[in-house]
């Protein structure tokens, strides 16, 4: 019998209400504590401008991490997301440059991004390849394709309607944040209230059992990689608008940030456990820490070290 250390701890002490409560809300508590500490460390942190900044910057990673969560729920992983972001950004700039209309550009980019997802998904679902290997290969293939399409020079975007549309505000809320919120709501609802979502939890929870109750691994695995890729494509479009260029350099290491967000959000790498809300919080915990370090003037390389340490601590803290 697998021994759940978490519950054993709770059993040891009869006064477990606090422990259980902490266990359930540790993510929210961590986020609140982080905001408190940050506002003490830097008075600029709570300024409206900075908060907006955090929200806009993290919308990209958050959306990518939602797709990652879907993949991880099935017990897989998608390392190609950062590369897909880059390819989508390059295509966006290229299509706009070619004079395509904005809706056509968006549709074409999203449709094209189904292709890397279909390949990863096909390799995993039909070819029975390890998700890590399949998506690792796709990561370099897609990044390479982005560089090839870019042909050396970055493509600057001059279409102001496009840039304003994706970087402006709708009412008081920045468009990228709105898109992230919309994605969060839709993807949350899908996980919680559709048979598709239920099947993903089943596949991740026990693949053999899922097969034996007639759940199609092929169809559903294929679908999650497609979804992850399309969400990354969407982020590529957002990034192109924010940077005003299409470059293959964008989205480097984004797969790691997305995985970190999912893991800090308490999802199980074995699959079958995790939620959109917690992943969103996970993404923002990482984002706020990065923002704080920027405000405190910590250089880029130490930031990388600190980020890694925090991921380790977060996972250890969840276990303990």
């Amino acid at each position: 019998m697998p021994v759940n250390t978490g519950s054993l701890k709770a059993q040891r002490q009869p006064r477990e209400s606090l422990g259980v409560w902490l266990g359930r809300y540790y993510l929210i508590i961590s986020l609140v504590l982080l905001v408190l500490i940050s506002s003490i460390l830097s008075p600029r942190f709570l300024s409206q401008e900075n908060l907006m900044n955090i929200a806009i910057q993290n919308s990209a990673v958050a959306i990518v991490s939602f797709g990652m969560l879907y993949v991880i729920l099935t017990g897989g992983i998608d390392l190609s997301v950062g590369s897909v972001v880059a390819l989508a950004a390059c295509f966006t700039a290229g299509f706009l440059e070619a004079g395509w209309s904005i809706p056509l550009t968006i549709l074409a980019v999203l449709a094209l991004m189904l292709i890397p997802g279909a390949i990863s998904g096909g390799l995993v679902a039909i070819g029975k390849m390890e998700p890590f290997i399949a998506s690792l290969a796709m990561m370099t293939i897609v990044r390479g394709a982005a560089y090839m399409y870019q042909v050396g020079s970055v493509r600057v975007i001059f279409n102001n309607a496009f840039i304003n549309g994706f970087t402006g505000n709708l009412g008081p809320i920045p468009v990228p944040v709105l898109i992230m919120a919309l994605a969060a709501v839709v993807l949350h609802v899908v996980l919680k209230y559709t048979t598709f979502g239920r099947k993903l939890y089943a596949i991740g929870g026990n693949r053999d059992a899922a097969r034996l109750v007639g759940i199609s691994l092929r169809k559903n695995l294929f679908a999650v990689y497609m979804l992850s890729s399309v969400l990354s494509g969407l982020v590529g479009i957002l990034m192109a608008a924010r940077l005003r260029v299409g470059t293959a350099l964008v989205g480097q290491g984004m797969e790691l940030d997305a995985i970190a967000a999912v893991v800090i959000g308490g999802a199980s790498f074995a699959g079958g456990r995790g939620t959109i809300l917690n992943t969103l919080i996970g993404a923002f915990i990482i984002g706020i820490i990065g923002n704080m370090m920027n405000l405190m003037g910590i250089a880029a390389y130490p930031q990388m070290v600190i980020k890694g340490v925090i991921i380790i601590l977060a996972v250890l803290a969840r276990r303990g």
Binding site: Y193, T195, F196, K199, R273
Partner: peptide, 25 residues
């Protein structure tokens, strides 16, 4: 068994069509 899923989901997973309409549970 899907050990981490609730009893409810473990029972209805055999025929999700019966507990859903157009993919919605």
């Amino acid at each position: 068994l899907f050990l981490e899923l609730p009893v409810r989901a473990n029972i209805t997973v055999g025929d999700l069509g019966r507990v859903s309409r157009l993919g919605w549970i």
